[in-house]
Design a protein around this nucleic acid. Structure first.
Length: 865
RNA sequence: GGGAGUUUAGCUCAGUUGGGAGAGCAUCUGCCUUACAAGCAGGCGGUCGUAGGUUCGAGCCCUACAAUUCCCACCA
């Protein structure tokens, strides 16, 4: 039995998890007799370590999975990891650099091997970490975005989209990272303000009649200028439109054009247009049919177009040289400091270069339509609802998705070019013979796919798609996606439109958005700030259960949460409380033959407890169904501590100490209730609940609490009367405790209290024990308190008449205030008319009671005089 | 520039269709009462950001404003 020892989670968490794994409780099977429930785990980067954000995200998922599993669903939580192509490549290149190598030196094949060695090395580290936090994912179905099934899904999806004309190759301006030597998507560009300079450069007129001045932050791109633009409404420059300028440091001439894009008030009102190296200029260039001149190459060096003097220079050197030459030629008006926003590569932090390149794109306009519709129609619900706005905004403004990357890590694009006739073939395997020219030699496109391409297929690739597997048929669409709001648009949207395109349905029915975990000052946790909290350290010290509770207690959906060790301490204190409650239950159950709940003779306190328990079960279940796990946990926490421990356990003691049948009955109910509470708590604190469950005596015990049934509310309307009766007793106890404290009587001193009304023996025992008093019907003077049971007088306090009178007057004042309040409401005809009848009745009842109390108090006062 | 969140006790935050303001921590008082001092009992503490409006009634609904955080776009 479980009657000794203190709460030491480190002594049992590991073993319990091992048992769960051995018993295969995490494994979900296709079972047509059960309803499916499925969560696909958002795959963390395979090489990352578990951080506090994961802990929150996964706790949400584990709570829901465990809840549904206990409800009898076939609950699948499918885990996996992501290869994070660009992030991994950056790290691999760094590693090679340390070894004095480059990826080009070792070649593509060897590089692939390096990548796989890397995956294998880190492969299950993060998943092992997740296990220590108690997560109940089905590890048998672990997937990786580069594994066979995922690769097969990627190939299938690519070729389908290609054949439908939804994937195409195009030349356009894209963000290019000269360090990663790859194009990156808009989402992978992070902007930050940087101190730079604004160069004011003189562009002479071609006819030698003076010059104009343009302002730029990128003087080195002037070799790519193909025009200077002014606003068509700008009176200053209207006459100049059409005139030709001599481009400094070159022999070229460029025109002055008019375009709305230019703001009159900014800089000089004249903008140099460099279509190949600026997104806005690119658009202007398209409108005016300007030539694209690339002056920066993919290495981040100046190209031949910029002239012999500049060719091969870095951007930085070129900039300095341009400045020097302009100065020498008297073409530099001034240089002023200027702070502006500069885009950087998310992974390697290098400033990005807008560049014209040839890339593969996914055409979005049609693809996006069902994804918008499903949310509008309610086929996919987003919690909280307000995030729908972000979702729609994103999809309505979406650009074609650039999916090719010039790196080596990831899924290679399944496009082959005929060596002879350049025929383009999309194929899962290398084609053997060209249909057009019969050539047998093909070269595969060197690029790989954006990581998000495989992540977009994640909800169905993990279930076996494109094969028509049983898993896919049973579990797809999945039940809910759990993720933080920062990734809703980047990832969730992709899964939805790819889900419709490939798997013909929404990938998940619900999308649950939670906030981010911040530090105590509300800052984002990051390596550079050094404010990160390692969930594994916390778990090791305080137990995984305490960590989980600290993360999700009192959090609201979609709202950031601040993490603090105070919360962990509090959670541990709560678990300790549960631990001690279990010791109490155990201690008194050992010598008792438990009676099934239907057959137990229940007294008032038992009915009161069962009545309240039934309501708790309803509330918790409904909150969990709404994904409000923060609220559900609060419900359970408050009930266990404030209702069960503080009141019910104490109420049980008189019966327990009496022994015999009365004890057996009480302990049976106590056991029943505690068992239900453990089950309610289990999804949140799986380890300690399992440990206690295994070590206490209960009827109908399952092999594990994990697979026990989640409590369901029973009909308790018959207990309502007893419930109200108990509430009256508790009210009296609280009021008596209160006057005792006010009278400065120590809480452990048994006070003599006068009471003249009728009480059952039970009630008398309870009140005497819990208020620490002895009741007597011998009248005396003292502090008076009026309760719904009658009048109690505290006798053992030496008080003179004056003080008692003062007390009474204070009570009378209080009650008068109440009476006036009720009267005011009830005398308002519009309240009586319009407010719900039950409310009006309630108010009338209160007024009546208060009037009675008022009369009693007044007669007391009079009798003193 | 566009959009969203937040603003409630000293601190961290709940508050489920509008119907007498809540928890934890901190603090104060008294208790080592036979499950638990990681505890028990009792207190102190709030014009619910500001100003209007709707309503019999507003922390909750509407409007404006302020502070703060974030997202998107952009910054020649």
């Amino acid at each position: 039995m479980h009657t000794k020892g203190t709460f030491k989670p480190e002594e049992f968490e590991r073993d319990i998890y091992k048992t769960w794994e051995e018993k295969k409780y995490f494994h979900a099977e296709v079972d047509k007799s059960k309803e499916p429930f499925c969560i696909i785990m958002p795959p963390p980067n395979v090489t990352s370590q578990a951080h506090i954000g994961h802990a929150l995200d996964m706790t949400y998922q584990d709570v829901l999975t465990r809840f549904k599993r206990m409800q009898g669903k076939s609950a699948l939580w499918l885990p996996g990891a992501d290869h994070a192509a660009l992030a991994t490549e950056v790290k691999l290149v760094e590693k090679l650099k340390k070894e004095g190598k480059t990826k080009e030196q070792i070649g593509r094949e060897a590089f692939d091997k390096e990548a796989w060695a890397w995956y294998n090395h880190y492969g299950d580290r993060i998943m092992t970490q997740f296990k220590t936090l108690g997560f109940s994912a089905d590890w048998d179905r672990y997937h990786f975005t580069m594994d066979k099934t995922s690769t097969s899904a990627v190939l299938e999806a690519f070729i389908r989209l290609y054949d439908k004309g939804l994937i195409y190759r195009g030349t356009r301006q894209t963000h290019y990272c000269v360090s990663c030597k790859s194009v990156i998507s808009d989402d992978e560009v992070v902007y930050s303000d940087e101190k730079g300079s604004m160069w004011h450069i003189r562009y002479p007129f071609a006819d030698g009649s003076g010059y104009i001045v343009v302002a730029t932050t990128r003087p080195e791109t002037l070799f790519g200028d193909t025009a200077v633009a002014v606003n068509p409404k700008d009176k200053r420059y209207k006459k100049l439109v059409g005139k030709m300028l001599k481009l400094p440091l070159t022999t070229r001439e460029i025109p002055i054009i008019a375009d709305d894009y230019v703001e009159e008030s900014f800089g000089t009102g004249m903008v140099k247009i460099t279509p190949a190296h600026d997104p806005n200029d690119y658009e202007v260039g398209k409108r005016h049919n300007l030539e694209l001149i690339s002056v920066i190459d993919k290495e981040g060096k100046m190209s031949a177009v910029s002239g012999k003097e500049f060719e091969g220079l870095s951007i930085k050197d070129a900039r300095a040289k341009v400045e020097k030459l302009l100065k020498e030629q008297g073409l530099l008006e001034k240089v002023e400091p200027y702070t502006h926003s500069v885009g950087h590569c998310e992974r390697c932090k290098t400033p990005i270069e807008p560049m014209i390149t040839e890339q593969w794109f996914v055409k979005m306009s049609e693809l996006v339509k069902p994804a918008i519709k499903v949310v509008k129609d309610g086929g996919l619900k987003i919690y909280p609802k307000r995030f729908e706005k972000n979702y729609f905004h994103w999809l309505n403004n979406i650009q074609d998705w650039c999916i090719s990357r010039q790196i080596w890590t990831g899924h290679r694009i399944p496009i082959y070019y005929c060596d002879k006739c350049k025929n383009v073939v999309a194929s899962k395997n290398a084609p053997t013979k060209c249909e057009k020219c019969g050539c047998t030699h093909f070269t595969q496109d060197p690029d790989v796919l954006d990581t998000w391409f495989s992540s977009a297929l994640w909800p169905f690739s993990t279930l076996g798609w494109p094969e028509k597997t049983e898993d896919f048929n049973y579990f797809y669409p999945t039940s809910v996606l759990v993720t933080a709001y920062d990734i809703l648009t980047q990832w969730a949207t992709k899964m939805v439109y790819m889900g419709f395109e490939c798997a013909k349905d929404t990938p998940f029915r619900n999308c649950l958005i939670h906030g981010l975990v911040r530090d105590e000052q509300g800052r984002k946790m990051s390596k550079s700030l050094g404010n990160g909290i390692d969930p594994l350290e916390v778990s090791e010290k305080y137990g995984a259960d305490a960590l989980r509770l600290a993360l999700v207690k009192d959090i609201a959906l979609g709202i950031d949460t601040k993490f603090s060790m105070t919360k962990v301490d509090n959670s541990r204190a709560f678990l300790n409380k549960v631990w001690n409650a279990s010791k109490f239950v155990s201690l008194h159950s050992s010598d008792v033959e438990l009676v099934p709940i239907e057959e137990v003779k229940k007294d008032v306190k038992d009915k009161w407890m069962l009545y309240k328990l039934s309501h708790l079960i309803k509330t918790v279940t409904s909150n969990l169904e709404k994904f409000d796990i923060g609220m559900a946990l609060s419900n359970i926490y408050n009930f266990i501590w404030n209702e069960f421990c503080d009141w019910y356990v104490e109420l049980c003691k008189p019966s327990i100490f009496k022994g015999g049948e009365e004890k057996a009955n009480t302990v049976s109910v106590l056991n029943f209730v505690f068992d239900k509470l453990l089950k309610l708590l289990h999804p949140f604190a799986p380890f300690v609940t399992e440990y206690i469950y295994q070590n206490i005596k209960t009827l109908d015990k399952s092999e594990s609490i994990m697979i026990a049934s989640f409590p369901t509310a029973s009909n308790v309307s018959a207990f309502k009367k007893a419930y109200l009766e108990e509430e009256q007793r508790l009210e009296a106890i609280k009021l008596i405790r209160n006057i005792k404290a006010e009278a400065k009587i120590a809480s452990n001193v048994r006070s003599l209290v006068y009471f003249s009304g009728e009480l059952t023996n039970d009630a008398k025992d309870e009140i005497e024990k819990l208020a620490t008093i002895v009741l007597t019907n011998e009248r005396g003077a003292g502090r008076i308190v009026i309760t719904s049971l009658g009048e109690f007088v505290l006798l053992d306090e030496k008080k003179d008449k004056g003080e008692i009178e003062k007390d009474l007057l204070a009570q009378i004042e209080k009650i008068k205030f109440e009476i006036e309040r009720s009267q005011k409401m009830l005398s308002n005809p519009r309240f009586v008319e319009k407010a719900p009848q039950s409310l009006v009745e309630e108010e009338k009842r209160k007024l009546e009671n208060n009037n009675l109390t008022f009369e009693t108090l007044k007669s007391k006062l009079n009798s003193l005089k």
